[in-house]
Amino acid sequence: MSASATPTFPPHLLDFQDWSRPQIESLLETARMMQEVLARPVKKVPALTGFTVATVFFEPSTRTRISFELAARRMSADVVSFSGAMSSTTKGETYRDTLRTLEQLGIDAYIIRADAAGVCHQAYRWLGKPVLNAGDGWRAHPTQALLDAFTLLQSLGSLEGRKIAIVGDILHSRVARSNAELLPLLGAAVVACGPATLLPASLPGARLTTDLREALEDADAVMVLRLQKERMDKGLLPSLPEYIAAYQVTQARLGWAKPQAPLLHPGPMNRDVELEGILAEAPQSLVERQVANGQAVRMAVLYHLLVGRKRSEG
């Protein structure tokens, strides 16, 4: 990678507000190189030797954390992990105190997940070090969107003019928000679909509809979101059977989309709730490939934040 061909990067990945198409494309190109590394018998490179990366998960998660930690280790970074849930009644240590404690340990980059939107922005303000958003509330999950884009590009070649349908609880979904920011940057048209009580009144980057058929019709790809059962407790949905009847993505309904349109799901999946169970193993399902790609994408992001960015500045 020559310095001149590499665009400069923001010092963090909080969302895609500060990102341009060339930056994203360069990042995805790096992910392709990382994928080659992961195909080798010895899946390790020295790129991040000497760097210390912290995963700081204020909201429990296993899959995403493992993916990040492995990504960092594959590049020879030292990794420390902090996890501790913050509840509304917790009177103990605040986010800021926790992060300032870690700061004293000489952390070079922070990978943060929290249940409140904006915690990663706050952390960057407090720390002034690279911060990688691993999911903040309903706000953003940028590496998920990057791995979705990476997976879609593998399958479709280009996203230019493609119709991507996202189905489920759009209002509370950081995956939907990040994809609505990212996919249009790469030329795609996003249609977000869900029941009226789980849709915002507007969402930049996406067209909204409550009509599942309208969303799926001629779609080039379909992304199905996990339905959180707690939405029922808050009175936003009358019942699970009704949601399934109206919004479950089934084999029959997938027929509305283009033939062999790839099917994505960020996981973890509620089989037979948002998605007809057998579809998870259908040929067009890319769910497993998403997980594999997640590692390569996260390696690429860490590389850019810690090494590539500085190199291009120099």
């Binding site: 904006g118 309903w138 953003a140 950081r174 009144a201 507007s202 969402l203």
Partner: peptide, 12 residues
């Protein structure tokens, strides 16, 4: 405030 900004920021 519920509106364009809250929908974009993902805040209740």
């Amino acid at each position: 405030h519920e509106g364009e900004v809250s929908f974009r920021l993902g805040l209740p």
